[in-house]
Design a protein around this nucleic acid. Structure first.
Length: 362
DNA sequence: AAGGCGGGGGG
DNA sequence: CCCCCAGCCTT
């Protein structure tokens, strides 16, 4: 039977993957060679030397790091990783933690649904007795999507799973010089990377691809001169690697305005835990007016007519920008049953927008 | 399929 | 100022 006949007999999807895999023959080996000398030393990783000695990764630390790193830079996540693992060294410790303690510890890291799902996930793992060890098993846990399931399966359990994050998308957008609609190109890349994962070293392959994207195939000014996979790169051949990936334009962020009230009473500040769902869900907050794109937000009844803002803070959220007028008030005028938090604690437990307001009041 | 959901650092 | 980053979930 001729080679052509064999290929012809294969199902269409395998034929396509086979063709792409052939185009990248040798890439995995070149990448792994580079990685053995240039791996980043990160607190949640075991290094190539340790892995070679058979030292296993800690699934708890791998998982915690991957959750923190979702849409978050390494230096920012690293500070929180150190604090979390010092305070809660195991998944059992984390599962036993009080919700408010975990939310406060996450304050400033953003995307607070991650912290709510973190606790849910830890408690599910403790309930079931251990971590799922496969990509599909991990994918069922709260807060674990396609990327994180593949990353934990590969990094913690050395399963043959792909970990396709923004770095890997960018690397392969350039290798392929992907010019199509970005959504479709990402699907092509996901399928291709799955086929390229070497059976014997999936963890190192995942880490190597991410390190390449983070240190060489960077968003701006990629360092193609020292790139170990340069000879496979269509974008480099074209001469404008920075042109890729080609993503859709993003929408402008509207500006919303409102008031925030820093109400002080003998070392405490008035606080309220925000609703579990929605913006800053489950986090400690300061009282505010509504936030409106048009018009003037209504003042609360208890706010004295004479009250004047002491300044303004601006903050950029994912889909809008916020400008808040900051009022500084002393107790005695506020009805109802507000919560009060020592100012020193509030400084640490509040998300960034409210930290800015609190800081302005001192 | 599209939109909600943080925050910070780099060019 | 702009850009984007180790994404996930809901509707």
């Amino acid at each position: 039977m001729t080679m052509l006949a064999i290929v012809h007999a294969m199902p269409t999807r395998e034929k396509a993957a086979s063709a792409e895999s052939t185009r990248f023959d040798g890439l995995s080996d070149a990448l792994l060679d580079w990685y053995s000398a240039h791996a980043r030393d990160l607190p949640w990783r075991i290094g190539p030397a340790q892995r070679a000695k058979g030292i296993p990764a800690d699934p708890y630390r791998v998982w915690l790091a991957e959750i923190m790193l979702q849409q978050t830079t390494v230096p920012h996540a690293a500070r929180y990783f150190e604090a979390f693992t010092r305070r809660w060294p195991t998944v059992v410790d984390l599962a036993d933690a009080a919700d408010a303690d975990v939310m406060a510890a996450w304050a400033g890291l953003g995307y607070y649904a991650r912290a709510r799902n973190l606790l849910k996930c830890a408690r599910e793992v403790v309930e079931r007795g251990d971590w799922p060890r496969t990509e599909t098993g991990l994918r069922e846990l709260p807060g674990i999507g396609a990327y994180t399931a593949g990353a934990v399966a590969a990094l913690a359990f050395n399963q043959r799973a792909p970990a396709v994050d923004g770095n890997v998308d960018r690397v392969f957008a350039r290798l392929l010089a992907a010019k199509g609609e970005w959504k479709a190109e990402k699907a092509v890349i996901a399928s291709l990377v799955r086929d390229l994962v070497p059976a014997d070293r999936p963890a190192e392959f995942a880490e190597a691809l991410m390190d390449l994207g983070a240190t060489i195939c960077t968003p701006k000014r990629p360092n193609c001169l020292i790139c170990p996979v340069r000879s496979w790169c269509a974008a480099q051949a074209e001469g404008e690697p920075e042109r890729y990936p080609i993503k859709p334009a993003r929408k402008a962020k509207p500006l919303r305005r409102g008031d925030v009230y820093v109400v002080l009473r003998s070392g405490d500040v008035m606080t309220q835990t925000r609703p579990q769902n929605g913006l800053l869900g489950g986090m400690l907050g300061l009282p505010t007016s509504d936030w409106l794109e048009d018009g003037t937000p209504e003042k609360p009844d208890w706010l004295p007519d004479s009250a004047r803002p002491i300044g303004e803070v601006r903050h950029v959220f994912t889909h809008f920008e916020l400008q808040l007028s900051v009022f500084r008030l002393t107790s005695g005028t506020v009805p109802g049953n507000p919560g009060w938090t020592p100012v020193d604690d509030a400084e640490k437990a509040l998300p960034s927008v409210f930290r800015k307001a609190l800081k302005l009041a001192f």
